[in-house]
Nucleic acid binder design. Structure first.
Lengths: 241, 241
DNA sequence: CGTATTTTTGAAGCGATTCAATGGACGTGG
DNA sequence: CCACGTCCATTGAATCGCTTCAAAAATACG
């Protein structure tokens, strides 16, 4: 496989690859293959044998779980530089979730055993993976706590703030969350219904906090979202914007 | 530090240490120190700088988070062979949760940098940690999905089933969950209130599914708990017990 | 044995869901 | 370019599961 840094130099900073020397990087890339997905394609589905491990190079994927009775839950979105399906490197298991591309997406994939062998030889790689997984556990713990203790409006506010971190782009008039998101998906991220999300967003729109257009959300007053998420009194924030 | 396997031979099977050779094990133990806690003692508190990483040798700890307004959420219980605070090995962060002993507890602790150095030299150790964290992420994802999609009774059923796996002991008349648990704690594990837990447990008690005594829960009909957790019709299970 | 903590239970209230119906946006094909 | 079907969003009304509050009962503990 050709070195992908020429085309995607930011990849060198991915948490997975950070700090690795060139020799190791070359061997890592030699062991992997690139894969390409169209928007809507499924990379792997929940329940399939977990064969391959991936690094996102470009694009975006949605990782979700379905319940026994068909309800969906969005676990997270995956953006360039992030990894998925580490479970494949740990032997004979099934993918615990489904990964679908939400836009044209490029990945590097490794066979589970191949990646396991790399980690078993190169301690630096394992440390990087440990670091990534630790961050992810913390994030899941936070979301768990939110879901257990906070009301819907607050959870949606937090959901949007998280999306800003992952896919926020400064534009005139605010920060654009640069991905198509239905009310249904927002609901699946925050553990509520599409109806509640709709009501909340229309309220926020009349309050001037957000503007939505073509399934894209423009956050006009992030500080007010923070105020809602943290339950701060609005007026504490009006002067420091 | 003396080899702790004499006193706790099962420790050799801990996911953290599994498959490691004796030489490495010796070095690992040489770098750590044992620590002892009484029931109720705090090992570390949320927000403190994350200095040390731990392996539970004996006893039990509760890992919990508090929200800004003081509500508690129980993230998980930690039993012998499990690790906690891997975040300490990844530099300059704070403990994201509080760990308290719920019974007399023995641990091995390592300085964060020391453990980082071990992982950076010994790839097998990193692989073990990756495996542990992967399992834990899956568990948190499952709990997140449950909280987002399932009703309170089902969540409490799942909570008890999880506790059975961690601290279940076969006794005559069923499986005893061998730890003191208030209604409040069960509520904090499952994202509900102590009142709802109380109502559900009394109902289950009249149904003959559980018996509670001195804050201990005896599960008399685990298959019926499974039926509730999975929403199976009861009568499918009556003949296969 | 008395005080503190935990548990139970009823009643009221509410936040969020559910259901149903309407309206709008978008893309395709006639 | 309009018609049509599909998908998504909005909104009102009804309902409900769960929480909240309050008070009493039970249990733990020094």
């Amino acid at each position: 496989m050709a070195e992908p840094f020429d085309e995607y130099p930011e990849l060198r900073l991915a948490p997975l690859l950070k700090g690795l020397d060139n020799d190791l990087l070359a061997r890592i890339f030699a062991a992997g293959t690139t894969e390409t997905l169209q928007a809507g394609d499924t990379l792997f589905a929940q329940g399939e044998p977990a064969k391959r491990f991936y690094l996102v190079v470009d694009g975006r994927l949605r990782l979700s779980q379905v319940t026994a009775n068909g309800q969906q839950v969005v676990i997270r979105f995956l953006t360039p530089g992030q990894i998925l399906a580490i479970v494949a490197a740990l032997g004979h298991e099934e993918y615990p979730a489904t990964a679908e591309a939400v836009e044209p997406t490029k990945l590097i994939g490794w066979g589970g055993e191949a990646w396991h062998a790399l980690m078993a030889r190169e301690a630096a790689l394992g440390v990087n993976v440990v670091s990534i997984l630790t961050t992810r556990i913390q994030e899941m713990q936070d979301r768990f706590r939110e879901l257990a203790t906070e009301n819907v409006e607050r959870r949606v506010a937090r959901g949007l703030l998280r999306l800003i971190r992952q896919a926020g782009r400064r534009v005139e008039g605010g920060v654009l969350i640069d991905m198509q998101l239905t009310r249904q998906e927002l609901a699946e991220m925050t553990g509520t219904t599409l109806y509640s999300v709709s009501r909340i967003l229309t309220q926020w729109e009349t309050d001037g906090i957000v503007r939505t257009d073509k399934r894209r959300v423009l956050v006009r007053a992030g500080h007010r979202l923070v105020a809602i998420a943290e339950d701060l009194p609005e007026d504490l924030l009006t002067d420091d914007r």
